[in-house]
């Protein structure tokens, strides 16, 4: 037994010795310290009566779905081009759940075309759960949540064709988008539908701002989960984001002051 443990220690020692010295060790240690500090704050933080800045994009969800219901039209949910392991896709799925809950209350069907099969499956489950939580399980129609293609432009054309065909009352674009963003939104703009977008693609933000009624810009997409759920853990993480930002801004200022002198 002792010999076995010794052999394992020997193996571990070889691993450490084989490791190359690199400046990245410093950054690893630096991030680890920030990580520990963050979690220390996280655990001891009393989160009561915390106010979050209003997010127009999330507040506008109910208005858009309500308008769609008045017009007797379905809503269209486009979940970006990055597949589900991407953080933006996970944030998009959280918003989809909220959209499904509101749609269930208003009895409005959801159409959701996807460019990734895994995202499609997750979206199906999110919509099912949203409709169950919204108290309208009879309205679940998984055939309206489907896969089209992985290719960017064929996907954009298919979504535009769906817009022409179904004439949705509201369209939501959440997640990461590339060159197709303006092709999608400018085309739908012509149909007079309400459009709400949320993206972490900095290059596509101007296009969404110009063509959509509401836009969740950058980090707002990730903050939307805490804004919707309003549970203590999510709020703590949101607060932690701000603390981290303040800390890094402080480091940048100190570095620049040091650079001047």
């Amino acid at each position: 037994m002792l010999r076995k443990i010794n052999r394992n220690y020997f193996f571990l020692l070889i691993l450490i010795l084989k490791a190359q010295a690199s400046p990245q060790y410093f950054w690893g240690l630096f991030i680890f310290i920030i990580f520990l500090m963050g979690f220390a704050i996280f655990y001891f933080l009393p989160m009561k009566d915390v106010k979050i800045r209003e997010l127009g994009g999330i507040n506008g969800l109910e208005e858009a779905i309500g308008r769609s219901t008045e017009m007797g039209k379905p809503i269209l949910y486009v979940a970006g081009l990055k597949p589900i392991p991407a953080v933006s896709a996970i944030a998009a799925m959280n918003i989809l759940n909220e959209v499904a809950k509101i749609s269930a209350r208003y009895s409005t069907p959801i159409i959701s075309p996807h460019n990734n099969p895994v995202t499609m499956l997750t979206a199906k489950e999110e919509i099912k759960e949203g409709f169950l939580q919204g108290g309208n399980p009879d309205l679940i129609n998984t055939s309206k949540i489907f896969y089209i293609t992985d290719s960017t432009f064929p996907y954009a054309v298919a979504v535009n064709s769906l817009v022409n065909e179904t004439k949705p009352g509201a369209i939501f674009y959440m997640g990461t988008f590339y060159a197709e963003s303006l092709i999608l939104t400018e085309h739908a703009q012509g149909t007079g539908t309400i459009q709400i977008a949320g993206t972490d693609s900095v290059a596509q933000l101007p296009f969404f701002i110009v063509t959509c009624d509401f836009t969740l810009m950058g980090e707002e997409l990730f903050a939307s989960t805490a804004y919707i759920k309003k549970d203590t853990t999510s709020l703590k993480f949101l607060f932690l984001t701000d603390i981290l930002k303040a800390f890094i801004i402080l480091l940048i200022i100190i570095y620049n002051i040091g650079h001047i002198f």
């Binding site: 953080v87 944030a91 950058g218 989960t225 993480f237 984001t241 930002k245």
Partner: peptide, 22 residues
């Protein structure tokens, strides 16, 4: 800058099981 910190914190949420919708 904001997006990167948002992604890092959301990744932590996923790693520590706070975010489970996936």
């Amino acid at each position: 800058f904001g997006i990167t910190i948002g992604i890092i914190l959301t990744s932590f949420k996923i790693i520590f099981g706070v975010e489970k919708n996936w």
